[in-house]
């Protein structure tokens, strides 16, 4: 069990960390774009982001399942992963975390005094430099956005169960393992896995909190 547990923990971390990385890579710029600019369709984009923030993971799982299944006309696309692989789980988690990261980043950026951007521009900043200055002021909110994204995916089970299939040694992660052990009546194991999951969440959130504090003092 120890070796299996290590494998499950590592896969959980790999899937969620990779998904968080890509959702932050897309979500932070999207949040800045929505927070700082006016463009046609912005209101609709914000409503979609808000809707995505509350999307049930199982529905995302269903959509990704359909997208990657043989019935989907898009499944032949070379960059799409196969079903029941860690990559499929990562894709589902990116879709889950993206609106959380983008939405919270947008709110954080909007909370920065709008005069700051203008004043930085008045000092000769380019648009990109001005956006970066706003982002620096909003950094606590941006870290909170990343924390929210992480919280949304490390603990979700519906999407990874659907697209990963909970295959032992291949796609079993902590949340799906907890469900399996509970169904089999192995409550002690399930509880232990739950504690491990909580511990991981605590350590990662503590690290992000320390990072937030350091940035605040910088």
């Amino acid at each position: 069990m120890d070796a299996q547990l290590g494998e499950i923990i590592l896969l959980s971390l790999r899937v969620s960390a990779t998904a968080l990385f890509f959702s932050s890579l897309c979500g932070i710029p999207a949040g800045i774009l929505l927070g700082l600019n006016r463009f046609p369709g912005k209101r609709l984009a914000i409503i979609l982001i808000y809707t995505g923030m509350g999307f049930p993971p199982v529905v995302i799982g269903l959509l990704v399942y359909f997208l990657l299944s043989q019935q989907s006309p898009l499944s032949a696309l070379p960059f799409l992963p196969d079903l029941f692989t860690p990559e499929a789980m990562i894709l589902a988690q990116i879709i889950l975390a993206f609106p959380l990261v983008a939405g919270f980043t947008m709110t954080a950026v909007q909370a920065v005094d709008p005069a700051l951007r203008l004043q930085v521009m008045a000092l000769g900043a380019t648009r990109a430099q001005a956006a970066l200055a706003v982002l620096r002021q909003a950094k606590n909110g941006v870290i909170a956005a990343i924390v929210a994204g992480f919280g949304g995916i490390i603990s979700e089970v519906g999407a990874v169960m659907m697209v990963g299939g909970n295959i032992e040694g291949r796609t079993r992660v902590l949340t799906t393992a907890i469900i399996l052990e509970t169904r089999q009546g192995n409550f002690q194991t399930a509880l232990a896995l739950g504690l491990v999951l909580l511990g991981i969440a605590f350590v990662i959130n503590a690290l992000l909190f320390v990072l937030q504090e350091r940035w605040q003092d910088a």
Binding site: A115, L116, L118, Q119, L123, R136, A218
Partner: peptide
């Protein structure tokens, strides 16, 4: 260069 009536400084 424009100096605003209510200048905002960076927290540094």
């Amino acid at each position: 260069t424009l100096v605003f009536q209510r200048p905002l400084l960076i927290n540094t």
